[in-house]
Each structure stands twice: as structure tokens, then as C-alpha cells.
Design a protein around this nucleic acid. Sequence first.
DNA 1: CAGCATCCGCTTTGATACTG
DNA 2: CAGTATCAAAGCGGATGCTG
Lengths: 219, 219
Amino acid sequence: VKTYDQFCAAARALDVVGDRWTLLIVRELLTQGPCRYTDLRDGLPGIATNLLAERLRDLQRNGVITREEAPPPIATSLFRLTPRGEELRPVIEALGLWGAPLLQEMPKTAAFRTHWLVLPLERRLRGRARSGPPVTIEVQTGDRPVLIEARGKDVHVRPGTTPNADATLRGTPPLILALMAGELDLDSACAQGLEFEGDREALARVQPATQSQTSGLRR
Amino acid sequence: VKTYDQFCAAARALDVVGDRWTLLIVRELLTQGPCRYTDLRDGLPGIATNLLAERLRDLQRNGVITREEAPPPIATSLFRLTPRGEELRPVIEALGLWGAPLLQEMPKTAAFRTHWLVLPLERRLRGRARSGPPVTIEVQTGDRPVLIEARGKDVHVRPGTTPNADATLRGTPPLILALMAGELDLDSACAQGLEFEGDREALARVQPATQSQTSGLRR
DNA sequence: CAGCATCCGCTTTGATACTG
DNA sequence: CAGTATCAAAGCGGATGCTG
């Protein structure tokens, strides 16, 4: 809330989104889409409820999000990013890219939500989809499953489940990420505890070529 | 300093660079190169000296900067980004891109340092250099001048001065930025207070084609 | 129950003064 | 020049209570 009061674009951006929790709220809305208050609360373990309310007010005042009052009968209000707020995606992307190596040295007590995989998975799979029939892969690694859907040349990742996935992956988040980054091939991942069911061809459709299978990974 | 403790790359990045002032210190080192303590202090108007010292300690501990103790006799220590710290450039870039529109509504009391122009000018001029002989343009708008140097296809911007610039620009930061972003042509800018000396062809070598000269700009 | 507001103890920040 | 020391003010985290 305290401005740097500097004629510098980056400093101005930090005036708006530089407060604690603010960019993580944006991350939630980017990965989950429009959220209720409680959805945000669940996706931000550790935040104090009054802080969440205050940040949401600030973000709305600054044109980053809108609050959508739901229709009268049984209802709840939705928070969603404005187009201007959507434009923060590259900021989160850049931070995620830079922070990715730091995930190696995480305490295993760290909180995790499955939808946090959406951005890194989409980034790692972007443009990697090979031609072929559309495939759906379900990933089970946290509270809820996520779906990797490859259609044509692009790959989408979203929270959800489906009865007819072509393949199912189950394992710790680091294993999933290493596999989908091409740091680990499927057999190595399975040796480290990954469970795989379904069509290996479906996985091959989206997984990048493995670059080095000698890397030992913790957990 | 307080970790979010979340298994999320963006959150991990914010654990390291999310504290107040931290990313602005990185901005200083990106735009000024290796800095002495006082250089940083001057480039960060408003920071408390104890905070600067503490942030520098943290950044060093996290491998973002190194402190280079100077040789014994008359000396001073230098802070510089590590390669890992250099990789934060995209983060600052993304923030600057997002924050640029907010510069329109700045109070005129805002602090300014000329080297803050380096990143936005380089971004706006990137790939815009037309073929032709090398040119140097001096920009005088703050405490110290900056030089725009076009050599071949790329353009570099750095703090400095030269006796033989092909052209000299003098005016407020918003005017300079609008001009170099192609939002204003030279004549319009001059009508709003910009002073120009030298070779108009030299400016044309790096300035993008003007897109709309009807925009009124404050200051 | 969703969506906060209030209160309280603790930590971080900001401003200034002082030191090797 | 390059910080450390000190202290007041603001921000944060956690718990609890209120309201539709």
C-alpha cells in the first residue's frame, strides 16, 4: 500500500502488486479462473482472512480484479481477473521460471495444491505436443486431479477429472514435474515411485524427449 | 524473509525477491552495473540504510549478488549480480511492461533517476534500429545524462555522456518516453517542451514510426 | 456457511543518529 | 564510505466474533 513514489514502471507495478500475497492471489485467479472467497482462501494456505479481504479490495480498486455479485437467491460472489489483470500472466511466468530451481530444496512440509501445477505444466508442454489423435492424461498428485489435454498442436492443463483418460499419473509433485520437463523418462520415474496406468503412447504424445536419465531426484 | 512455504515456483521466487525493495535493488544492478553501497542508496530514494544492508545480505546469501571486496589500499566494495541474479531481468522486464501505463498518473513529486530510463528505452528501441551509420544520442532529463548508442542492428542505452553526440534530447521523462515509444513525433514533442539539438536523421535512425500525434500528454 | 471486521501480539519497516 | 544501533510506526498472522 506504501508507494515507492518513483518514476519507474517496475516500481509502479510493485506499488500495485508488490505487497505480500498480492501476486499469489493473481496466481490463484490465473490457474483456477474465477474464484469465490473461500476458493482463494483454500488456495492460499497461511493467509490471514482479513489480509485476503484487504488485498481483494486493493486489487479491485486498482483495476486488476472485479467482484461479481451473484444473483439474489442462493448465491456467492465471484472474483475474477480483468483483462488488465490477465496481463500479469507474464510476471507470474517470469517469476515461476526463475523460481523453478528453488523447488529442489523444499522442505517436505511445504503446502501444495494441485492447480499450482497448471502454469509450470503448460509452460513445459507448450509447443511440445506431437501430431496425432487428441489425448487426455489425468494427474493425481495432490488434493484434486488435473487434466492434461492435448488437442492438435497445443496443450491445455486444468483442474478436473474424467472417466475416460488415456493415461493416469500418480506421484509426488517433483516427480511429475521432472517427468513432464523431460528430466526423467517414464521408467526412471516409475523406479522412483511414480505410478502409471494406461497408454504409454498417450504420454509420449506430450512428454518431451528425455535429455538425461542419470539425475537423481529427491522424494 | 518470511517464506510462503508453498510448493510453487512463483511462491519460491517471491520468498527470495518478494520483500520490499529487493527487486528494486536488482533493478539498480541491472541498469547501473556493479554498484557501491552509496550508488545503490542514491538509486533507491526512500530506502532506509539498515534495510539496504539487510537486503544485500539476504541477496548474497541467496546467490543473487556477490560482494566484491576491493583491494586493500584505497578501496570500496562492489555489489554485482551473479549470473543467477542476471536471470531476474525477465521479471523486471515483465513488471516494467505491466507498470508502464501507470506512469501516466504519477504525481510530479515522484523521484527520478536517469538510469531508470535504460530498461524502458532499450525495450522500446529493441530491433527498431534501422540500417545506417552508427549514431549516438545523448538524453538529458534527470540527474545525469544517458546515451543511446545504435550500432548495426541493436541499440544500447547506458548512463554516460560524450562530447560528440549526433543529437541531444532534453525534456521531462514522460516526454522522452513518449517520443521513443513512437507515441509522439519530434515536432509534437518539441511543442510540448522538448528541446532537440543536432541531426534529425540520427534520431530517425532509432525512433519508431509515430503512430498517433494527437495524444495530449501531461507535463 | 460465505465473507468479512475487530482485536491483539509480534515482526518488519522507516527515519534518524551514530561509528569504524 | 559503508554500514550498525535505536526506536516509533506500520504491517502481518492468528484468533475470534459478527452478519446476511
